[in-house]
Design a protein around this nucleic acid. Sequence first.
DNA 1: CGAAGCATTGACACAACTCAAGCTTTGTGG
DNA 2: CCACAAAGCTTGAGTTGTGTCAATGCTTCG
Lengths: 265, 265
Amino acid sequence: MGALQRTCNGCNYKKICLASGLDDDEIAKFDRVMKRRLRLSRSNYLFRSGAPADSIYTVRSGSLKSYVTDEEGREQITNFYLPGEIVGLDALTSNIHPSTVQALESTTICEMPLASLNKLMDTIPTLRNQLIRLMSGAIRVEEDHSMLLGKKTAEQRLASLLLNFASRFHDRGYSSHEFNLSMSRNDMGNYLGLAMETVSRLFSRFQDMGLITVNRKLVHINDLDALHVMVLESSPDALGKGQKEAKQEYTQSVSQNSKETVLYH
Amino acid sequence: MGALQRTCNGCNYKKICLASGLDDDEIAKFDRVMKRRLRLSRSNYLFRSGAPADSIYTVRSGSLKSYVTDEEGREQITNFYLPGEIVGLDALTSNIHPSTVQALESTTICEMPLASLNKLMDTIPTLRNQLIRLMSGAIRVEEDHSMLLGKKTAEQRLASLLLNFASRFHDRGYSSHEFNLSMSRNDMGNYLGLAMETVSRLFSRFQDMGLITVNRKLVHINDLDALHVMVLESSPDALGKGQKEAKQEYTQSVSQNSKETVLYH
DNA sequence: CGAAGCATTGACACAACTCAAGCTTTGTGG
DNA sequence: CCACAAAGCTTGAGTTGTGTCAATGCTTCG
C-alpha cells in the first residue's frame, strides 16, 4: 500500500504513531532524528530478549510478533504488531529488552534512538504526552490479553483474535472483513493460550458454521455480528449460574454506589 | 509499619514510587501538589471502570486489587498493589479508567492529580523519566502475567504468586518467608486463571509437601528453593519432549545469531 | 449465638491437550 | 523448472488437568 515514504509527513501512519499530535515544526524535528527503513525478512529478529535497548521502533510495513521467554525456554507471544504500532515499550525500565521481536513477513521499521527521543521530549511536551498515551494503551492491551487468557473459552479466544485484527485492519484503511493473518497457527495458538490443533479445529468449525471463509492465511469474515455475540456468550450453556450472578453484580456495581466511600483527612 | 508521614521525604517508599530519583528541591515541588491520605476500608473502591481519570495514585499502606470487566460482567484481576506501587497507569490514553480498583484491607493512598503531574514534568525531566520507567515496568508485569496465564500449570501459577509476593515484601523491608496475603482464595484464583477450589487444593498440597505452612491468610514459606524449582519444571513428567526441544531452541537462539540480519538502506 | 461469608474436600464431567497419521504448501538445490 | 524435503496444517482418537457441583467446616461479626 503506497511506496515507502522517506519522511514522517508523507507517512500513512503519522496519526497513529509517536508523531501523532505534533505540529509541522515539531514533526520536522522528529523527522530529523528518526532512522528510517530498517528492513527485516520473515523470521528475522528485530532484537532479542536480553539485548541492550537503545531505541524504540515503529512498524512501517509488514508485521511482527513479540514474545517473552522463561527460564525453561517456554515462549509466550504477547503481541502482534501492525503498521503504525510501537515496539519496545517494555524496555524502558532497564534499557534491556525483556522480550524478543521477530518479523512475521518482510517488514520495514522506523527506529527512534532513545537518546534522541529524550532530547526531543525536553522541548516537545506533546511528544512526551503521546509516548505516555501509547504506553498506557500498551498496558490496556495487555490487560485485555489477560482477560482473554484467564476467562475466555477457546472459541471466544479465536473470535476475539479475529475481531481484534478486523478492527485494527479497518483502522489502517484495509478491509475489516477480508485480511491476511501473517502468523502461523502455532503462533496464534501460542498467543491465545491454546494448542495449535485447537486453533485449526476452530477455524474449521467457524467455517462450517458459515462465520468465516478461510484459506490458509487469508480470512474472510462472513458474519461479524455472530463473532461478536460469540465473544460475549459461551456457546454451551451460555448463561450458567456463575455467569448470571456475575452479570447482575456488574450492573449493580455500575448503577449504584453503595460502597463508594472515599474520605480525605 | 510506622506512622503515616505527611511528606514524601519522610516516606518509606520514596525510592520506589514516582518521586524516585528526584533531588531535594524537586521532591519539595512534588510534595506540594501531592494529595495525601486518601483512605479506603476493605472492599471500597478507589475508582471504577468507566469513571473519568484525573489522577494517578500511590499505595501508602494496605493493598488493592485491580480488575477489568467485559461486557458479560466477567472480571479478570490484573494486579495486586502493595505500598509504593502506582495505580491508574492504564487510564492515561483516554482519561477514562479501564479498570476498577478496590481495597483488599484498610488502605491509605497518595493522589497525584494529572494536571499537576503534567505541569511538574515540564520542569522536571527526571519525573517524566520515572513515570516512563514505571509504565514500562507495568507493561513487563503484564507480560509476565500473560506467561503465567498462557503457559503455566496450576501448580506453577500458585508457586509464582507466592514467590512474587515473597520478593515484593522483601523489597519493602518485610519478611520474605512469612506474610499475609490480603486477598481471598477467590481473588487469587481469579488472578491466576484458576477456580478457587483449585487454589485451595494447591495450598493444602503445598502444605502436605512441606513447602509452606498456611493458616488462612498467613503464609509461611518453608522451602523457597523447592518453589523456585517448581515454577521451572512441571511436576508430572518434568521434561517432556516438547519442553526439551523448546529449551534447546532457546539456548541456541541466545548463543548463536544465525538469523540476525538487520539491514539499513 | 446464629447467620453469612469464606475455605476445604470430594466426586464427577468435560474442554482442551497430546499423540499420531496423513495431507498440502513452500522453499531449495540440482 | 522440477523434485523432493521440510514445514505447516488438518483431522482423529484417546487422555487428563482443571472446572463444576455439592456438601461440610470454620471464622467472623453483628
